[in-house]
Design a protein around this nucleic acid. Sequence first.
DNA 1: TGTAATAGTGTTCAAATGACACTAATATAA
DNA 2: TTATATTAGTGTCATTTGAACACTATTACA
Lengths: 216, 216
Amino acid sequence: MNSPTASLPTLTTDIVPFAIRGERLEVLLARQTTGWGLPGGPVGVDEDLDAAARRQLAEQTGLSDVYLEQLYTFGRPDRNPARRMVAVAYFALIPIASGSAGVPAAGDAARWAAVDEPPPLVLDHGEIVAVARRRLAAKLLYSTIALQLMPERFTLSELQAVHEIILGEPLDKRNFRKRVLAMDRIEATGELARHGGRRPARLYRALHPGQVELIK
Amino acid sequence: MNSPTASLPTLTTDIVPFAIRGERLEVLLARQTTGWGLPGGPVGVDEDLDAAARRQLAEQTGLSDVYLEQLYTFGRPDRNPARRMVAVAYFALIPIASGSAGVPAAGDAARWAAVDEPPPLVLDHGEIVAVARRRLAAKLLYSTIALQLMPERFTLSELQAVHEIILGEPLDKRNFRKRVLAMDRIEATGELARHGGRRPARLYRALHPGQVELIK
DNA sequence: TGTAATAGTGTTCAAATGACACTAATATAA
DNA sequence: TTATATTAGTGTCATTTGAACACTATTACA
């Protein structure tokens, strides 16, 4: 275990795990001794930062194989009154559970919260969530990052809904479709989504799953 | 002084100090025991990260009051073979010396190097410089960041030259002027720059010096 | 067979962008 | 004093891009 010393700041990672659930953008929180906060914790002495973030996310929420991106490093000396801690923050994007069980949440130790009306969080985790949210919305506009929130097969309506939820505004259906198809990063599978009571939609898949590319 | 321990990574800041000198984008390097590298070093136990970066830049190069922005945190366990070090990297933008002495460089302990043909640098500092350079070029296109490289008074031709040097491509004079004036972030002072042998140019100044705004 | 619900599709206008060439003002040299 | 060299400064037109906008198609179910 890492024990804090007087001579060095403790280095941690904190992860903001985003997913679209229902009609909202939500964050997965981890229970801590003093309240709810972001999954995360101390970085091992010889552990890579990205690896530490992945490990902590998996240990505290059961999530693995997700998209992870470094966000910012928070290091104000007073961010933790107890002892000096510097946090390398990441955000994670968790695909909408497609059909199967839904996103795992480690029972009592984790819970989802809406990003727009979050509960009070420990330390500066509220600020970290806000920064992550802004970054995510910004990247929607010039990258293929939204695909990381989608299941393997998805409809264009679903993809549009994800954009609308994150941006917080409705988008024009025809313009949206024109734009995402022009990117050439998704293709129709030929299959149809059946959901009862209405016209079935074509299913698409990402051409380079896992990759996030800048566009235009 | 900070002494490394077995149980925690040492946390440092590294700063990439950019300036336009002559017709090139250059970086200010600091002499280290094993060669040339970026200014930087250990973060104090109760020192803010930004403050640590500013302090180290001042101590090692004499530069103060410059634009500073956090870049990325580099933490691969093998980036320093001697002992585990995690570096929060920043870049700094140093205004072109306007008339006066030129950018201070602390004698023997610091030197400027062209970004395009850098000398070998210690550790992963070459990579850090490359990342910083890409970020700077990207931000030119959608922010007013270039103004941080300009002296208090400057001509539009000088501003255009700065863009061209960083982007590595020539820009159309009329379109460039249209664009930067439309931003409404600089204004003509009414003065003229005299430089002998040709038509004098109008001098402009930044409307909100020190601020970097996103545009469009 | 009718109805309710979502999927899917083009055109038109406005705005932004990109290409392009000449005149103006100064210092210096002839 | 005049000619020349050098950089500053300016507008238009064509193309591309972005935004607004409404109807038909396909299915499940009543």
